[in-house]
């Protein structure tokens, strides 16, 4: 009897200590510098988001958040690195939709976009915009589709890279409208936009940041954005979905931890990130970068990854742009 009581007491003490240790872990987190792994080279917009977040996280949580660029294989190097990292909250990933797209694009990918990570927080979403050179003489999406049907392969539409969101938007648009044009891949949005402005190619699906100043200067005609709703930065430009119901290519940027990271840590990071993204100063900066803020619960990011993964797994094989 006595022995049993002791045993129960001991059990309770162990359980209490265990619980305490757990919540203490979240309360003390972070106790040492945290690595923010970025799948692109320094200087890109995703890198800039990571550095903005890192600086504010450091100021709020009191330990350095160090941005580490591990560019390579269109992001796969970084995705695999974080998937295999210790799930203790000290290695985080700042990723974009490439995380959900690459498994359909590459034959050998050593991570699972859904199972390898604990989603922490969605940070931003972004639209692609279809722009054309004014010389093409097209004013709206209907006119564009008509020209595409008439010119066929003589119409040259660029992208910021093969397999990029701009390229995939074009692939989706072609399959929805039964058009077929010539795809010209560039290295990055800047050079691609310049080639449309210079009249060397006819048009382009691209992120907002490099295109908006040229649109405002009248050097490019914006026909439509790829998100279901119009973009804040371009309120007069319709969404593709307004004429092609269901059309949706939404880029997103979010923070992930390796699967198995304690929920308390994930929640603490999520709450902090939500607070940071709500700061007016950060909001303005993100909008200037061409993004719209979209911080939400971890589950929201998880849902986004799952939906994207399923969608591109269906479309990419149809368009036959798989690479190895």
């Amino acid at each position: 009897m006595k022995r049993n009581t002791l045993r129960i007491l001991a059990g309770a003490v162990i359980a209490a200590v265990g619980l305490n240790a757990h919540s203490a872990f979240a309360a003390d987190y972070p106790e040492k510098p945290v690595r923010l792994i970025v799948p692109t080279a320094a200087g890109g917009s995703l890198d800039t988001i990571a550095r903005l977040l890192g600086q504010r996280l450091e100021a709020t949580l009191g330990k350095p958040f160090v941005v580490e660029n591990r560019a390579g294989a269109n992001g796969n190097t970084a995705f695999e690195f974080v998937a295999k990292a210790k799930p203790d909250g000290y290695t985080l990933l700042v990723a974009s939709d490439a995380l959900a797209i690459n498994p359909s694009l590459y034959q050998n990918v050593n991570y699972d976009p859904v199972k390898s990570y604990a989603p922490v927080a969605l940070v931003t979403t972004a639209a692609q915009v279809l722009v054309v050179n004014p010389a093409l003489g097209v004013k709206d999406l209907k006119g564009f589709t008509a020209v595409a049907k008439q010119k066929g392969k003589a119409l040259s539409i660029g992208s910021p890279g093969s397999g990029s969101a701009g390229h995939l938007s074009a692939v989706l648009y072609q399959s929805e409208t039964k058009t077929e044009w010539t795809h010209v891949a560039f290295k990055g949005g800047g050079p691609a936009v310049t080639n449309v402005v210079g009249g060397h190619i006819d048009g382009l699906f691209v992120t907002l940041a490099p295109a908006v100043p040229q649109i405002k200067a009248g050097k490019l005609v914006a026909l439509a954005v790829t998100t279901p709703k119009r973009a804040v930065a371009l309120p007069d430009v319709p969404a593709v979905g307004e004429s092609l119901p269901g059309f949706d290519v939404t880029n997103w940027q979010g923070v992930f931890a390796p699967a198995g990271t304690p929920a308390a840590v994930v929640n603490k990071l999520n709450a902090t990130i939500q607070k940071i993204v709500a700061e007016p100063e950060i909001q303005t900066k993100l909008v200037d970068l061409g993004f719209e803020t979209a911080a939400g619960a971890p589950a929201e990011l998880g849902k986004q990854v799952q939906e994207n993964f399923a969608k591109w797994a269906k479309i990419i094989p149809q368009a036959n742009i798989t690479v190895d």
Binding site: S45, A209, P213, Q214, K285, D288
Partner: peptide
């Protein structure tokens, strides 16, 4: 861009 200056 982070300073809100978009080249153009």
């Amino acid at each position: 861009t982070i300073q809100g200056i978009v080249p153009g």
